[in-house]
Design a protein around this nucleic acid. Structure first.
Lengths: 111, 111
DNA sequence: TTGACATATTCCTATATGAGAATATATTGG
DNA sequence: CCAATATATTCTCATATAGGAATATGTCAA
């Protein structure tokens, strides 16, 4: 078996940095493909292909406006990623706490 | 250019579902490779290869204990994912609020 | 209808994968 | 040292890319 398809879920789709760039850009507001192309400094076909992947996994939505197509983020589709990472939040906070404690103990010893 | 290497960053590493499974399992506590193999119901070489990827991007840490190697999560490496997804939190909360408002308006009309 | 603009698709290729099978390496007890 | 246990590596193969180039499709204005 090869690697899971980029379109298999949001995790795979956002693994590609260019697609995260596009999502970051769209987070501000809805944009046409040309606007994305100009902002990202990517070839238009590349942008279209990335948008296709993002649309497939529900990370963006499109609507037509004249000859343009306006893409916007569907933030809800990012939630599963956020929730998954949140399960580890307790762990890294614990880690940070220990680092802080160690630093303070170190400081106290120097006094 | 092909897809970015799974070892290029945490985003790519956790795109693979089996690796997320392993991280979830390790979130509870440090475990040996054999324990992971038994829990995940995967072949031992597969587990070792996945652990190699996770280690490469800093998502896990290892220490030897006799003939065993004990792996544990390094939660800090998951933070970048969490922070990136957090950027969109405002957006989906806004989305949820609008859904709620619409539901309430709908309810009021039925009264 | 035609031309111009906007977006999408197809074809190509180098490349990296994940699983499975086989094998190698490392560590300990006796 | 040897045998047993624990883990890692190598090899092969089917598969899915991402980007570039070329082209197709869609939509409006005149």
């Amino acid at each position: 078996m090869a690697r899971a398809a980029t379109t298999s879920d949001a995790f795979n789709a956002v693994a590609e940095p260019r697609r995260r760039d596009i999502l970051n850009y769209l987070a501000m507001q809805e944009r046409s493909v040309t606007e994305i192309v100009d902002a990202m400094e990517m070839e238009q076909p590349s942008v279209s292909k990335h948008l296709k992947v993002l649309k497939r996994v529900g990370l963006v939505e499109v609507r037509r406006e004249g000859r343009q197509k306006l893409y916007k983020v569907n933030a809800m589709a990012i939630r599963p990623l956020h929730e998954w990472t949140s399960t580890f939040e307790r762990l890294w906070k614990h880690q940070l706490l220990r680092i802080k404690e160690r630093a303070e103990a170190n400081n106290a010893q120097k006094q």
